[in-house]
């Protein structure tokens, strides 16, 4: 109980510290402060979409899936293509984006099944081989995307479904893109939905039990391998969904996989391996930290590298204070 209180105190201290730092360095400009805050929440939602799959897969299966960022890219490329390719222009513009998200998510899920059943399953007794394999799969996916779409990145056109991409709203005299708010809302909805799945359903109970002791779950009459496949598919589909949702804002490019994988890994570790709560909280903490540092570094230091290393710096800081992460088990 005392440890939990200490964890919440640490989260509160770091969050308030980041917000205060952002406010002070904005010289009281609420518009600038608000932009940073919204950027942090936006990044946090996207980090969650990559990290939630990583976290659940690692918690249950002890596999660190280095291909998770590649699934994020697949979602983005598929959604981009379905929206922009000539062949799909006959489809109503308000349907093309949701359709792209659905197809991108399904393709991510199918590729997840292929990876788990075809490649990872024979290697369950060899964790190091699995690690290397997922790393290799990430490279193969990247090369595959390069072969299909080329090396140039794609920016989303100005045409969007329901006009949401161009919509703006104003707070403190600054214009904010409504799409960022939409992504934050989607992230929050998914946090709640996955949380409900884990807490309120039988499959959620099985997953949480499997995180503790998958052999015992099997001994109770549950086909753990089938659960592994389901969880791996879900994790990959959520990452592809993240890429699909991010595409109108970030476009589609070959760097986006790693750009979200590394913060995703930092989130999973600093949140506490296998802890869903830790992943949800950690995503927004890392998102906020990156946004605050990015703005400060670009305004005052005239360089952006600090934003890239912020997730790892935050990870180091939290592990120094909490060696098993925010919500991790001491013994893990």
């Amino acid at each position: 109980m005392q440890r939990t209180r200490g964890t919440y105190a640490l989260i509160l201290t770091l969050t308030v510290g980041l917000l205060a730092f952002s406010f002070i360095t904005s010289a009281g400009d609420l518009g600038s402060f608000g932009t940073t805050l919204l950027s942090g929440l936006f990044l946090g939602a996207l980090y969650f979409l990559v990290a939630s799959g990583l976290s659940i897969i690692f918690g249950l299966m002890d596999i660190l899936n280095f291909a998770q960022g590649a699934y994020f890219m697949v979602g983005a490329y598929v959604t981009y293509s379905l929206f922009h390719l000539e062949a799909f222009q006959g489809i109503d513009v308000n349907l093309r984006f949701p359709l792209g998200v659905v197809v991108g998510t399904i393709i991510g899920g199918v590729l997840g099944v292929v990876l788990e059943r075809g490649l990872l399953r024979p290697l369950y007794a060899r964790p190091i081989f699995q690690l290397v394999l997922t790393f290799g799969v990430a490279i193969v996916f990247g090369e595959g995307l390069k072969a299909i779409w080329g090396t140039e990145g794609y920016s989303w056109s100005t045409v969007t479904s329901f006009g949401i991409h161009q919509s703006q709203f104003e707070i403190f005299g600054r214009q904010f893109g409504a799409y960022r708010l939409f992504v934050v809302a989607v992230g929050v909805v998914l946090i709640v939905l996955i949380g409900l799945l884990l807490q309120r359903t039988r499959i959620g109970i099985i997953i949480r039990a499997g995180v503790e002791d998958s052999e015992m779950v099997e001994a109770l009459g549950i086909n753990v391998r089938a659960v592994f496949t389901m969880v791996f598919t879900l994790g990959c589909a959520v990452a592809a969904f993240g890429g699909a949702i991010a595409a109108p804002f970030l476009g589609a490019n070959l760097g986006m996989g790693n750009a979200f994988l590394l913060p995703g890994i930092a989130v999973v570790v600093l949140g506490g391996l296998g802890s869903y709560m830790g992943t949800a909280v950690g995503s927004f903490m890392v998102g906020l930290a990156v946004a605050v540092v990015a703005r400060f570094a670009s305004e005052f230091l005239n360089q952006t590298v600090w934003a890239s290393i912020t997730p790892m710096l935050l990870l180091i800081l939290i592990l120094l204070l909490r060696p098993s992460g925010l919500f991790g088990k001491e013994s893990r």
Binding site: I205, R208, A209
Partner: peptide, 10 residues
């Protein structure tokens, strides 16, 4: 080998 994070009911 009970599941420590699950409730008795779960």
């Amino acid at each position: 080998a009970i599941f420590r994070d699950l409730t008795v009911r779960e």
